[in-house]
Design a protein around this nucleic acid. Structure first.
Lengths: 357, 357
DNA sequence: CTGAAAGCGCTTACAG
DNA sequence: CTGAAAGCGCTTACAG
């Protein structure tokens, strides 16, 4: 896309006095100025190899001289593509999505695509509205977080031939492609480690599981581990609460007021874990001496607090990048859309006590 | 925009078996189905009050029945508007931009606009490329961070009649509208407080000032306060470094190795301040007993570390929201584009010691 | 209040 | 390798 390289410099400025009235040059102007047809100009811009060098040079000179930039709408309409990818995430305010989205955008840009963004605030209704909105804006493909939503959404997208990719989850058997990790297995592994450390009284502060398959899978993973070890998965105290620091603090204090204090509180993500840590401080409990805490995600916060939080590291940036690449491959029909699994890894830190020592 | 309300439900599904081949219905299909002209259908969708209820109802029924959604490219081309606003920020990974952008997007959505996002990584060249890219994608207006950039950029935008708004700065005399706060006066006020507390030996860890007018203004604000108090603004040790926690830590240790240890290290933002705090811990210095630290922004991090960081609170969410509203007002020619000033406020916390007590 | 028709600025078979 | 021309699906004066 040569036209993408047009400098701001001299040309843009030259154009100015010639057309102070916003008469942006069109393909036609370029064609006339170069003495060729509009078809040839179009080819120079889109498939230069199909034009002989001699004329191509003349055309490109005219393009620069006039400071020509293709009209977006016309191009979209004729080509039926916008080179735009939409992403709908719960919120940009959580570092994991900000980070993933940043990497997603960078990868998109590297391939000549632009990012259209919307947020759902974890509300299915808002998400559906945003999906329609991005589709109406001509998104060539869509990135969504998680996969648990009304089937009508997927039908809507399929009817319009708009590729979707679900990130943050890995569902090999899904008919839609996914790029992510196994939330359930990850939490199960962490819980196993917690149990290995001698903990038997486990509580959980979970994100809201309704409409959030990642949160639900994490909770299920904890239950898996309990069952694996002959513990009663139904006996775990669980508090579900939106992912906010303050909520983690409140939930933690509530859990500690019960008759049997847990020896460890596992949290649905690091934000809740940091809140739990604060809650512990507020009621004078020492972590990990009095109670252990674990998180999920491994955001910066997890290593900044004292003690640092034992958590699951999730490769957010890589997930964003690979989601972008996979989605573009599908949009450009270069690939059928197989799911990609990324690995999480346990980060043992000060907030989890090994009761065996 | 009624068409925006089309449900996913029955209609989308009904359409399916009729056209398993992706033959998306067009305006023409609707017109034929309702027995009116395309002009009338278009009016029903865009200015319903100009169509008599009787026919409007018939048309809307056809719209729903066919599951019609306007073609984006055609609409853009004919209307010469995309209802899309572009934003280019340094990075989504800094919480302040993530938060501001989130609010910006929400406000955009409330007004029927969609957000196109790109990031510059604080690189002017990348930013210029992104500006061209978003313009090429038909952005109706642009949000940029700060105002210090090549004048050719503004000429380019003006030649294309694309409104720009600079956020994070407040420049009343600028010919472009700005929505933000006075970085220089804010830092000056905080530095004055620091001096009032008895500090005389002040050092600063600044962001890179080249090409970043916010960072430069903050440093200038510190110098202002020093001059105000008869101190030598040229004598302040200053280290400029990119906004990363680790850099703050390194810079802090470097500053502490000098002959005359500062009694306070003021940081260009909270990220650097948190890094400085970590640096202090690493070399066994106690904050604020051995040395004080201040930040800028008041992100969550500032209240999570121990001690909490004295900083300047900046209303990021409000800034994002008001920037969106101001920009749309300009795009829709409802307002001339006056700048809006927001206020920052000093948050005194544990990391700053009052030497007088 | 409604319709016929031009026009928006490209892309892309189809010829040559 | 290049051009004439149709067509993409809307919006919007202009008539009536």
């Amino acid at each position: 896309m040569m036209w993408d390289m047009l400098a701001f410099g001299p040309h843009a400025r030259d154009g100015n006095w010639i057309s102070n009235l916003p008469s942006v040059p069109t393909l036609d102007d370029v064609a006339r100025s170069a003495g060729v047809s509009t078809a040839t100009v179009s080819r120079c811009l889109n498939s230069p190899e199909r034009v002989v060098e001699h004329t191509r040079k003349r055309v490109m000179a005219a393009v620069e001289q006039l400071g020509y930039t293709p009209n977006f709408g016309a191009r979209v309409m004729a080509a039926k593509r916008t080179f735009t990818i939409g992403a709908i995430i719960p919120t940009m305010e959580n570092a994991i999505f900000a980070r993933g989205l940043q990497a997603f955008q960078e990868a998109l840009h590297a391939r000549g695509y632009t990012l259209l963004v919307a947020s759902s605030a974890y509300q299915p209704k808002i998400e559906e509205e945003q999906i329609r909105s991005l589709v109406a804006r001509g998104a060539d493909g869509l990135l969504l977080i998680g996969h648990d939503r009304d089937p009508a959404v997927y039908e809507y997208l399929r009817a319009r031939s708009i590729p979707v990719l679900s990130a943050w989850v890995y569902l090999p058997d899904c008919d839609q492609p996914t790029v992510g990790f196994d939330n359930r297995a990850s939490m199960r592994a962490l819980a196993q480690k917690v149990i290995d450390f001698g903990h038997r009284s486990i509580a959980m502060i979970s994100g809201i599981t309704e409409g959030n398959d990642r949160a639900a899978a994490r909770l299920a993973g904890l239950r898996d581990a309990l069952s694996d070890n002959g513990l009663d998965p139904g006996a775990v105290p669980v508090i579900e609460t939106p992912y906010e620091i303050e909520n983690g603090s409140v939930a933690f204090r509530t859990l500690m007021q019960g008759d049997t204090r847990p020896s460890v509180v596992m949290c649905g993500n690091d934000v809740l874990a940091v809140g739990a840590l604060r809650g512990a401080r507020e009621i004078g409990l020492s972590v990990p001496d009095d109670v252990s805490i674990t998180g999920f995600d491994d955001i910066e916060l997890a290593r900044i607090v004292e003690p640092q939080i034992t958590t699951l590291h999730v490769p957010h940036r890589e997930m964003g990048r690979r989601a972008a690449e996979a989605l573009i491959d599908i949009v450009e029909k270069r690939n059928s859309g197989a799911s990609i699994e990324l690995q999480s890894s346990i980060q043992l830190r000060g907030s989890l006590r090994d009761l065996r020592v």
